[in-house]
Design a protein around this nucleic acid. Structure first.
Lengths: 137, 137
DNA sequence: ATTGTAATTGACGTTTACGTAAACGTCAAT
DNA sequence: ATTGACGTTTACGTAAACGTCAATTACAAT
């Protein structure tokens, strides 16, 4: 089995982040690559972790959450507790996202209405507009 | 005409923010209530501004943006420039929100799938699962 | 006058996810 | 021997939108 090795810049480019970011994750205890002298050498599993982290980030998880969840995939066995933890976090996050989506949808509606009003105000002039329509007091 | 007057805590409670927040907005030049000695006294128009600010916040505008946009409703006339500025900001923000919504929708789908996989993994046990399904490398 | 309640100010803390700068080491290639 | 590209560390900076705290006043009621 070839030992696949990655450099920090290699992974940074592949995942579209800066090497600073990857080092930052290491600081937070999310990855711990080997060292050859000072240079970091990433294994295939390090790369997988990284991928997972970035995926979690896209889904809106905090790095702390990711740290705990990622332990599910460690050399050790995926214990039931870890599994439950991850599942719970996922469901929490799902709820959060859905709530956010609701908020955003409302904001979009309000904005769209606002834009319509503003355009009308611009075209017809302030004269024949009642300020109520612009949602003022 | 009665001069309606509000205290800082009154408004804070009405709008569900802390008085610190309101003072913070003042710091940023978003409201400038009268003073009686040191005490802030808010007028009906101050209250309207505040309402507008909070509304903007809900819609995801920055305080800076709100500051500029809010001048539209100043004693001075709502100049065409201000109107255009506001309209532009609204459209920018609308675009931002729509893009966010897309991201969130994708995240929700991914999460829902992930949750399904995790549950399956939990029930059927690790044995008959291929790790690919859990999106690992 | 004292107690209590509110308000004020200023300064520093918080959170998240990094960016940036300084100053230096390493290594391959020329 | 030098150049260039990359790497390292430490430490401080950034952005937003406040929160928290402490010290100080102000004012109202007792």
């Amino acid at each position: 089995m070839e030992e696949t090795r990655y450099s920090i810049t290699e992974l940074a480019e592949e995942f579209g982040v800066t090497s600073r970011t990857i080092r930052f994750y290491e600081d937070k205890g999310l990855v711990s690559p080997e060292r050859e002298g000072l240079t970091r050498v990433y294994s295939r599993s390090d790369r997988a972790r990284l991928k997972l982290i970035l995926r979690g980030r896209r889904l809106g998880f905090s790095l702390q959450d990711m740290k705990k969840m990622i332990e599910l995939y460690d050399p050790s066995q995926g214990s039931m507790d870890q599994l439950k933890f991850t599942l719970q976090k996922c469901e929490d996050q799902l709820a959060k996202l859905k709530s956010q989506r609701t908020d955003i949808n409302e904001a979009i509606s309000e904005l769209e209405q606002g834009i319509r009003d503003l355009k009308e105000y611009k075209d017809k002039g302030p004269a024949e507009m009642n300020s109520q329509k612009l949602k003022l007091a």
